[in-house]
Amino acid sequence: MKTVATLTMNPTIDVSYDVGTVRHTHKMRTDNEWYAPGGGGINVARVLARLGTPTRCLYLSGGATGPALDGLIDAHQLPRTRIPIGGPTRIASAVLERDSGKEFRFTPSGPRLSEPEWRACLDALAEADCGLVVLSGSLPPGAPDNFYAMAIQLLRQRGVEVVLDSSGPALQRGIEAGGLLLVKPSQGELAELAGRTLEGIEAIGEAAMRIVETGQAGLVAVTMGHQGAVLARREGPVFLPAPRIHAASAVGAGDSFVAGMVHALGSGKEELEAFRWGVASGSAAVLRAGTDLARPADIRRLLLHIGAP
């Protein structure tokens, strides 16, 4: 199985805790406090490592909070390449209100990068010893919209396969670079790319197939939350409903989906089976409150309830 490297341009220290009722002004005592390393690529690497895929995470870290992120990644025993920056690593919070069962999420925009800092990320990718790279997450302030496009071009020249999961202009420019193994937009992100509302499985499949037909990506997996997901491939689009579960948190569901598909593809499973692994992994992530992400036992249990697309 080839080593998978993940790049996280805007990592986080993810803090989650529970509170009885959220009330303004009042001091609210919390419990079930949990700290985890986060951000798209780091989340993907955490799940890949649990599934047994050789993994290395590349990420930026800086300021007073940077060493805390480094320590959390080490606690998860993830091989890592740290790219130092001057700005402080951001801290994101997820608060579960027990009385309502609702989750409140607070995510800063992240530190502003200088050009030497984001170019150092490209240098790290040029030296990464891997067969596949997952580019996942938002771009921080200061990084150009075409950063992922530059990364994709660099990696394709090296013969490295690329998976992309981002949003907005960064996602659009990355797709335009072409040659992707897999791209994973949400339904809303795909609608933004298409420039119109996408209602229904057929419309989503048609928009996703345009990306495949132009050669920009071999696979396009469109996640639709609790409704399931659509996979566009050369043979045409297919749909899988999500298994019926009680959702405790939405944190990291998309990242877990990507990890499940990448692990399955890297293990030699064919595309539709990898799609099943993606849906099972995304669903497994929402079973657990906070930032725990998908667990292998949950993924394999849910696979038993997911039929062929």
Rank of each mutant, 00 (worst) to 15 (best):
I201D: 04
V222F: 01
G215T: 07
D123Q: 12
F147P: 03
A170H: 03
I204K: 09
R158C: 04
D99M: 10
A126S: 15
G38S: 10
T30R: 11
D129I: 05
G41Q: 02
Y59N: 00
M261N: 02
E202S: 12
G52D: 03
I13R: 02
A289R: 07
I204W: 11
A259C: 09
I13F: 00
R90I: 13
D31Y: 09
Q77M: 12
F239I: 11
G307R: 14
V15N: 01
A259H: 01
T81S: 04
L72K: 14
L164V: 12
G71V: 10
L48R: 06
G62K: 11
V15Q: 08
G178C: 06
A49T: 01
T81D: 08
L303Y: 06
L69F: 07
V279H: 00
L60E: 00
G87Q: 04
G131F: 02
R301Y: 11
K27F: 04
A151V: 11
I175P: 01
Y17C: 12
D70I: 07
G174H: 09
T223V: 04
P237R: 07
L155V: 08
D165Y: 05
H24F: 10
E206I: 14
T6P: 13
G228A: 07
V183S: 08
Q216W: 05
S256G: 08
G110N: 12
A92R: 10
L48V: 11
D99T: 15
A259G: 05
G142A: 03
P309S: 10
R244K: 15
M209K: 07
G282F: 03
Q153A: 14
A68H: 14
P54V: 04
K2F: 04
A75E: 14
T223F: 04
A45V: 01
L219V: 01
Q187S: 13
L180W: 06
G225Q: 03
G218H: 06
A232N: 05
L182Q: 07
H24S: 12
W118F: 08
G290H: 01
E189M: 11
S109Q: 15
R105I: 12
G41Y: 00
F147Y: 10
R112A: 14
F257D: 00
R98F: 02
S136M: 02
T8R: 07
S136N: 11
D18L: 05
A232F: 04
E161F: 07
R98C: 03
S167K: 14
K184F: 06
A203E: 09
F147A: 11
G101I: 15
V160Q: 15
P243K: 11
H26C: 13
L132R: 04
A284Q: 00
A294D: 07
E127W: 05
R210F: 02
P309M: 08
S16F: 05
Q157F: 10
G39N: 13
P37N: 10
D255R: 06
S109G: 15
A177E: 00
V162G: 10
